[in-house]
């Protein structure tokens, strides 16, 4: 589903400056977009606004043609149906990998849950770890579980917050390739936030630059187009 952000502004309580001021952009259904900008420019806040974890002080956010946040309406995170992969993954420490993955499938039947879980475990190639606890996995494996958990309820869109910040530099290339592969198989609208533009190669169809908390300028990433041609 497409995501539409119109002139969104946001200020944290007790902050003097806006974390996000007047951002406008649209992501079409099925598109993969990377949001790039220096640290502290409000990228993560923008993702939190789209996910419904924060309420914008001004502006409109629409998902799939439905307004989820404006001056009057506010749909909270638990009713937006958007997958979110946190920077530190936030896997539930008291649940196994399988329990984490099926956590969002509340109204599903037992059999369906099992089936979906198996599907996702094979997508992230961690079939052998269904009964492991999060702290028993490596950082890259934890990230894949977080991705599977976010994808499990078939969300309208997937948001990734700095997916490479907590990983070993040596594994960087490999994990980026894996992530790109998994995302292309999952076929879901994706917004990925990162501070390093080179991370977006292969991950995103389009790169948006966020600068000075203000306007997102769409930049055709010719590089990517060439790369895929």
């Amino acid at each position: 589903m497409d995501i539409c952000v119109r002139d969104v502004r946001f200020r944290y309580a007790c902050a003097t400056q806006c974390a996000v001021s007047g951002v406008t952009f649209t992501v079409r259904a099925g598109e993969k977009v990377a949001l790039v900008g220096a640290s502290g420019c409000g990228k993560s806040t923008l993702l939190r606004l789209i996910a419904g974890l924060e309420r914008p002080s001004y502006g409109v956010i629409a998902i799939g043609g439905h307004i989820v946040a404006d001056a009057r309406t506010f749909v909270p995170a638990e009713r937006r149906g958007i997958g979110y992969v946190f920077q530190d993954y936030a896997l539930f420490p008291h649940m196994t990998v399988a329990q984490n993955i099926v956590f969002g499938l509340r109204s599903w039947g037992k059999h369906q849950k099992q089936q979906r879980c198996d599907e996702l475990l094979s997508l992230i190639s961690l079939e052998a770890y269904a009964r492991a606890y999060p702290h028993e996995l490596s950082g890259g494996q934890q990230q894949r579980v977080a991705l599977a958990r976010a994808l499990a309820p078939q969300p309208a869109a997937l948001l990734l917050d700095e997916p490479f910040s907590n990983l070993d530099a040596a594994l960087h290339e490999e994990i980026r390739a894996q992530l790109a592969h998994m995302l292309s198989r999952a076929r879901v609208t994706t917004i990925c936030v990162t501070h390093d533009e080179s991370d977006t190669i292969g991950l995103a169809d389009r790169v948006l630059h966020l600068s000075g908390c203000a306007i997102v300028e769409p930049v055709r990433a010719a590089l990517h187009a060439v790369g895929r041609a």
Partner: peptide
């Protein structure tokens, strides 16, 4: 905060969130 927010993005809120996430992680 992150664990609770991630449960919310997965569609779990209110009493279910309290029983399934808050109580166990508070253990």
């Amino acid at each position: 905060a992150h664990v609770i927010e991630s449960a919310r993005t997965l569609g779990v809120g209110g009493v279910a969130l309290f029983l399934r996430i808050v109580v166990p992680i508070c253990r």
